[in-house]
Write a protein that binds this DNA or RNA. Structure first.
Lengths: 328, 328
DNA sequence: ACACGCAATGAATAATTATTCAAAGTCATA
DNA sequence: TATGACTTTGAATAATTATTCATTGCGTGT
């Protein structure tokens, strides 16, 4: 599938307007643009794939709103969005990320449109990436977007889920990328990175952000950490042994939201909780596999805004109820 | 068609998420929600009718961008959007309003999201109404929305195209409605309205708006004025005799953008050009029948931002070229 | 120039979505 | 409780959309 040329893009956008805004059938569009109906279908499909078409559902099902209400209270959240399940069964990560992405994308656009936001600090992760991809284009040429953590793998290869680039493209703002690993392999290596003037400058800048957007990671086999090989199987086991269930900004935390005593927890190259506490911190999390991680992250008290999916919400609510059972 | 109950709305929203965000087929949704496939279709159709689903096409066809560029230069516009034709032939008013509405709705959301906008003054008209209806919901509880002109018919019956109500509902802001006719029937009647303290207060408030959103009206048989019977056939003829081709904020102007010498032009109960000059003034206009009116409105120099449809743009460009032919 | 591989095309077909229609349900009134 | 007007329902059907597939067109290397 080669890159379509300008003319194709032109036709695709016209077809998309006619189809979605105009409500024309593909046959009508074909006649109007003087192409075959099959081509019209391909054009519209291309426009969607290329992200030129955006759907937004206003409102959410009642259950979601109830969860939102409950979590907002329990954890003193500013905004809480529970994105509806999108079929695919309870364990469909893809669907969860998609739903959270769509909901968070809109919230993000809303938050970043406020003129008093000058700089946003962003973490990494699939869900974050999906949210930024789903975000409508806004016009904030004066906005700065800064990495708050490294995002290279331990082998220094490029990270495919980088979010700074995409967000700067979507908002028109300028991106500042932190070219270091998410986790240093040793304390010495971490010091080495932190000694670099450019890194110090970027971190200082990152601390000045008005708003932070972060993902929540699990320690399990299906988390980013293992999947991207940011930690070895041995490191994973060691972390689990000392009670780590979640990863927030490269810090490893137990089910109560407290930092675990592990060397790795000190090797994150990036901002720490103390750097973001007090500012708005929007956290995104999708999928039931993140239940424990999300609960622990919420308990750190640094999160002010949350977007999760419905299945995770259900699972979270169950986990909370299990600890504090209702009197019969 | 009775009002659907809460449960229907609930199902409709869930179905909409599954369909548009999740990409499920109606059959899959039917299985998941345990209803018949036919019902799923009806639910999704309802969600769309009720405005819970919003499409946004990012980008416009090349021709539109070229017109935008040209008009921005010619008239020193801040923003100019030319909304693509949506089939239906060159004379389809409905399609033009729809397209302009969709494009303007998004621009409006963007403009009104800026925190430094405290108050917006709005005019009236079908196109304006469509734009506000297409506008995504935003959260600006501190925003004031004020009528800048009357909007009752000369017989004081309620105006169906009132836009203040809808915009205040969409933005969360508070609406201030000016309960007077668009045009007084006599100079005496106008004075009577203007003497009312409440009217004076509302007009004073309206003058303090940061941004104004207005429609452009034609004097022809198909304009709001005649259609809503705001002016009689005789008044229409009289206006046309003295060269009026357009109506901007209740002021009647000739093709050069100058006020026409007519009593009616003094009978608008609302803000005048002098009240808005200098502020941001977003004008909406749709349909080729508004060519002359739009040109005249642009020539008044009060308009800073413009949204029109492609057919009108074409027609406007032709009208301009006819006066200033290219050297052969 | 020729053959080769690959992408693009549109006719044909499969799948999905929208509409129709008869039947069942609902509500207000007698 | 019975009646009639009106709505809602889902099966059937019509219309539309998505996919398949054989073919064409195009660039590339020989």
């Amino acid at each position: 599938m080669g890159e379509p040329d300008d003319w194709t893009t032109y036709l695709a956008i016209r077809a998309a307007w006619l189809s979605f805004v105009g409500g024309c059938t593909q046959g009508e569009i074909a006649a109007r643009l003087d192409v075959s109906p099959a081509k019209v279908h391909r054009l519209i499909a291309y426009a969607q794939r290329a992200g030129h078409v955006r759907f937004h559902i206003e409102g959410r099902p009642l259950e979601c709103l109830e969860y939102e209400e409950a979590f907002s209270r329990s954890f003193g959240l500013n905004n809480c969005i529970v994105a509806p399940d999108l079929g695919g069964g309870a364990n469909d990560e893809q669907a969860a990320i998609r739903s959270v992405g769509a909901a968070a994308g809109n919230l993000l656009a809303q938050l970043l449109s406020a003129a008093d936001i000058r700089q946003v600090g962003v973490g990494m992760g699939r869900t974050l990436k999906a949210a930024v991809a789903a975000m409508p284009r806004i016009s904030r040429e004066d906005l700065s977007i800064v990495s708050i953590s490294g995002s290279l793998t331990s082998r220094l290869s490029a990270n495919p889920y980088d979010v700074v680039q995409l967000l700067s493209e979507r908002s028109g703002g300028e991106g500042y990328y932190l070219p270091v690993p998410y986790l240093a392999t040793t304390a010495t290596e971490k010091d080495m990175f932190l000694k670099q003037p450019s890194v110090q400058e970027l971190l200082a800048r990152a601390r000045r952000s008005d708003t932070f957007v972060v993902g929540i990671g699990s320690i399990g086999d299906d988390g980013h950490l293992r999947r991207m090989n940011l930690i070895s199987r041995e490191e994973q086991s060691a972390l689990q042994k000392v009670g780590a269930v979640g990863d927030l900004m490269g810090r490893f935390i137990d089910i109560d939201g407290a930092a675990v005593p592990a060397a790795l927890s000190e090797q994150a190259v990036g901002l720490g909780f103390e750097d973001v506490r007090g500012a708005r911190v929007l956290a995104l999390s999708g999928g039931v596999s993140k239940t424990a991680a999300t609960l622990s992250a919420l308990r750190t008290g640094v999160i002010t805004d949350l977007v999760i999916d419905e299945a995770l919400a259900k699972s979270l609510a169950d986990a909370i109820d299990a600890k504090v059972p209702q009197p019969a």
